[in-house]
């Protein structure tokens, strides 16, 4: 299914690596599968494993290792707030609390309407922009209290207006 429906993209990915090293395509294919299926459940993992002739367990292990692969259901927009040093001393804790309050969930949870998932993450290499978050891997810099409401409204509107969503950042544009 995945291969048939995304043949051109998958073939282009496979062509980047030597023919006898197609396992290298695993991370990009998992990103694709995650976007198509919304998360990496057992069936989608199995499908990727079959495309690359890999044992299912090898792929399962890789999915578990990396933080940007989601086993569990996530919302259409994954909000990743950096709470590392120095962000945690520059407004990140206040931002997490504010988002939890507005969304009615705790970090690590998804809203009932499945629009937002909120996560605390480690350094995302934008420390001078603290407090900083990524929404589906798009940076939102200096998310000070007065910016939160408008940011959430825009993100929600993007989802509701049917704009293509990529939780894996596969379709990222500047």
């Amino acid at each position: 299914m995945l291969y048939e429906q995304h043949k051109a993209e998958i073939d282009e990915i496979l062509a980047r690596y030597p023919v006898d090293r197609k396992r290298s395509a695993l991370l990009p294919l998992l990103y694709l599968a995650q976007d198509v299926y919304g998360r990496l459940d057992r069936d989608s993992i199995r499908e990727v494993a079959e495309i690359l002739d890999l044992p299912y367990t090898d792929v399962f292990e890789v999915v578990g290792f990396y933080t940007l692969f989601y086993n569990e259901e996530v919302g259409k927009v994954v909000l990743d707030v950096c709470d590392d040093v120095p962000c945690c001393f520059c407004g990140a804790e206040e931002l997490v609390a504010d988002l939890e309050n507005r969304l009615g969930i705790k970090a690590g949870e998804t809203t009932k309407d499945k629009v937002f998932t909120l996560r605390r993450v480690k350094c995302i290499a934008a420390c001078d922009q603290a407090p900083v978050l990524q929404a589906n891997l798009e940076f939102h810099n200096r998310v000070l209290p007065d910016k939160v409401e408008a940011m959430l409204a825009k993100l929600r509107n993007d989802v509701e207006s049917g704009k293509p969503v990529s939780i894996s950042g596969r379709l990222a544009e500047r």
Binding site: P28, Y31, D58, F65, Y66, L68
Partner: peptide
Amino acid sequence: IYVHRGAGAYICGEETALLESLEGKIG
């Protein structure tokens, strides 16, 4: 020149872990 995205793992900055990850394995 090809761009290869990791998937969230600090350890992949260590060069041999990076190579493992580029080969499609855990880093």
